[in-house]
C-alpha cells in the first residue's frame, strides 16, 4: 500500500483549471521528483496535498486514511510536512522559537519549555545551533531555507514536500543542500521534491512525475521521463521564459 495516494485531483481558479484530474502515489522511502514548467500545477498540487488549498474534486489518502477533508494542522500532526519556496519564518521569534512551534503543535505535542529545549536538536541537524537565540533577520537565504527544513522535520513527519529548496542558492549552497536532502531521506522520510534544477531532480529522485497544464504527462524513472518527447516539448516550449 502506498503511503500517500491521490486520485483525480481537480482545482479551478475562477474559470481556469490549474489541475485537471491528477492522480498518483508516493511509496514509503521514495524521493519523488515533481517537474514541469511554470504554471503546470506543481505548487497547486503541493498546496492541496498539504491541506493548504481544497481540491474541487478528488480524494487524498495518507497511510490508508482518507484525509481529503482533514485540516492542514491535523495533516501536519499526522506526518505531512512542507517547506515554502520563499522562506516564511515567524519573523518576531528567535530561530529557536521558530522550531519550537512545530514541536508544541505537531506530533510531539511538547510543552513549550520542553519544545524550546528539543528545538536545539533540529537546529544542530540543520547547522543553525549557533544562531539559536538570534532573531531570524540574522539568517541569510540559505540558512532560512535550512530553518524551514528544521521546522518541518521537528514534528518527525513521514512525508515532506520540498518546494524549490534550491531556488536562489549559489552552486556551493546547492551542493550542501543536496547532501542535506539525502540526510533527511536517511531519517526514513519520504520526499516529494519540486525543483527547477533538473540535474538535481535527476540525481536525487527515485521516480519522477512530469506535469504540464495541470495534467500528468509522463511518469517513471528519471532517465525515461527526461527523454519523453512530451516532457521535452513542454520544457522547450516555456522554460526560457522563467530561467
Amino acid at each position: 500500500m502506498s503511503l500517500l495516494q491521490f486520485d483525480g485531483i481537480h482545482k479551478r481558479f475562477g474559470g481556469v483549471a490549474a489541475l485537471g484530474g491528477v492522480s498518483g502515489t508516493l511509496d514509503e522511502g521514495e524521493i519523488l521528483g515533481l517537474v514541469g514548467p511554470n504554471g503546470s500545477g506543481k505548487s497547486t498540487l503541493i498546496n492541496i496535498l498539504s491541506g493548504f488549498a481544497e481540491p474541487n474534486e478528488g480524494r487524498i489518502s495518507f497511510a490508508g486514511v482518507d484525509v481529503t477533508d482533514t485540516e492542514a494542522h491535523h495533516r501536519f500532526g499526522a506526518g505531512i510536512a512542507r517547506t515554502y519556496q520563499i522562506p516564511r519564518p515567524f519573523s518576531s521569534m528567535t530561530v529557536r522559537h521558530n522550531v519550537a512551534v512545530p514541536l508544541i503543535f505537531g506530533k510531539t505535542k511538547l510543552h513549550p519549555s520542553a519544545a524550546t529545549e528539543r528545538a536545539m536538536h533540529w537546529l544542530e541537524f540543520a547547522g543553525l545551533a549557533s544562531y539559536a537565540d538570534q532573531p531570524v533577520s540574522e539568517l541569510n537565504l540559505h540558512q532560512l531555507k535550512y530553518l524551514e527544513l528544521a521546522r518541518a522535520l521537528a514534528s518527525e513527519p513521514r512525508v515532506l514536500f520540498l518546494d524549490e529548496v534550491l531556488a536562489g542558492l549559489n552552486p556551493t549552497e546547492i551542493e550542501e543542500s543536496i547532501l542535506m536532502i539525502r540526510r533527511i531521506h536517511d531519517l526514513g522520510i519520504s520526499l516529494v521534491i519540486v525543483e527547477h534544477v533538473l540535474r538535481v531532480v535527476n540525481a536525487l529522485s527515485t521516480r519522477i512525475v512530469a506535469l504540464n497544464q495541470g495534467l500528468v504527462i509522463a511518469e517513471g524513472a528519471p532517465t525515461d521521463v527526461m527523454a519523453d518527447p512530451e516532457v521535452v516539448k513542454a520544457y522547450l516550449g516555456s522554460r526560457w521564459k522563467h530561467a
Binding site: 498539504s50 491541506g51 493548504f52 485540516e71 492542514a72 494542522h73 501536519f76 500532526g77 510536512a81 512542507r82 515554502y84 516564511r88 519564518p89 515567524f90 519573523s91 518576531s92 521569534m93 519550537a100 512551534v101 512545530p102 508544541i104 503543535f105 505537531g106 506530533k107 510543552h111 513549550p112 521546522r151 518541518a152 514534528s155
Partner: peptide, 27 residues
C-alpha cells in the same frame, strides 16, 4: 502568553498560514 495557546497566537500573528501548516489549530 506563556501557554500553548499563546505560542499559537503569536505564530498566527507572524504568519497564520505557516502556523496552520506547522500544526497550530488556528481557528
Amino acid at each position: 502568553q506563556h501557554s500553548r495557546l499563546g505560542w499559537g497566537l503569536f505564530s498566527i500573528n507572524d504568519d497564520e498560514a505557516v502556523a496552520e501548516s506547522l500544526g497550530v489549530p488556528t481557528f
